[in-house]
């Protein structure tokens, strides 16, 4: 018998606190698989952000730092500038990266900070119980948009990869999804590339992973995957928005 699939070493053998069907677990595993594939666990420092994934510091086997809300790219910058030999990644949700941490995101990107950013976009604030996020879709009902997000009142969602792709410091800006096996395989490739870019000193790489929040969306895990496909992918098209390798 040969092993086709098993727990990556860079993932700790502990139970996560995530709700059943939450795609955080999938993306955690993909990140750990990338770290394993590149053989860099011993030199990797992960930055946990504030949101559901805050306790990811207990789940990744590499060294971890928990950053204040939105500041993960700044904390990552500090680590990377102090230890250029380290592989530094942030793992951030949409509220963290695209609302409170917008300045840190944009400026670490435009500086071409040589870090890897894993961005979980599930269109909602999960940890606090399902409030409107910067990526909440028009019309989407959340705890703080009980009548649906009215963009004329609450403003429009932010398409992060499109925005960051305009910045010179960005090496890779790619949007993937965690809703199906083929998409998860795509996501894995993108995450590996985002880490590889850093090792090859190419600059800022971000992988946005469209994700689900079954609990706060009020759907079963399987229904949530379908909701992601039907609603999020049309608004946030998957694809590579910037890849400096394509220019060469």
């Amino acid at each position: 018998m040969s092993v086709i699939f098993e727990k990556p070493k860079a993932l700790c053998d502990v139970d996560t606190h995530y709700c059943p069907g939450c795609t955080h677990g999938i993306v955690h595993r993909l990140v750990a698989e990338a770290i394993d594939e590149l053989g860099v666990e011993g030199q990797t420092v992960g930055i946990a952000s504030v949101g559901c994934s805050v306790m990811s510091y207990n789940y990744f086997a590499c060294d971890m730092i928990q950053a204040p809300h939105g500041r993960a790219p700044a904390v990552a910058t500090g680590v990377k500038r102090a230890h250029p030999e380290c592989v530094v990644f942030t793992y951030q949700g949409d509220g963290d990266l695209a609302a409170i941490g917008t300045a840190e995101t944009v400026h670490s990107a435009t500086r071409g900070e040589n870090i890897t950013v894993i961005f979980i976009n599930n269109a909602i604030y999960g940890m606090t119980g399902g409030q409107m996020a910067p990526t909440t879709l028009p019309g989407q009902v959340t705890q703080t948009t009980p009548y649906g997000r009215d963009v004329s009142y609450s403003g429009n969602p932010i398409r992060v990869c499109e925005m960051l792709s305009t910045l010179d410091g960005v090496a890779l800006a790619q949007r993937v999804a965690a809703d199906s096996v083929p998409h998860i395989k795509e996501a894995r490739k993108a995450i590996v590339k985002a880490f590889k870019n850093q090792i090859e000193k190419k600059g800022f790489s971000i992988v946005e992973v469209l994700s689900t929040c079954p609990t706060n969306w009020g759907l079963s895990p399987v229904e949530a995957m379908q909701w992601l496909r039907d609603n999020m992918i049309p608004y946030y098209p998957l694809g590579v928005y910037k890849d400096i390798d394509d220019k060469q």
């Binding site: 018998m1 040969s2 955080h24 999938i26 595993r29």
Partner: peptide, 21 residues
């Protein structure tokens, strides 16, 4: 058929997959 689709989508690394040589 050891396709590992179950393990790939599992958020909790519940399933380990092997294939007969």
């Amino acid at each position: 058929i050891s396709c590992a689709m179950c393990a790939t989508i599992c958020p909790d690394v519940v399933i380990r997959v092997e294939r007969a040589e």
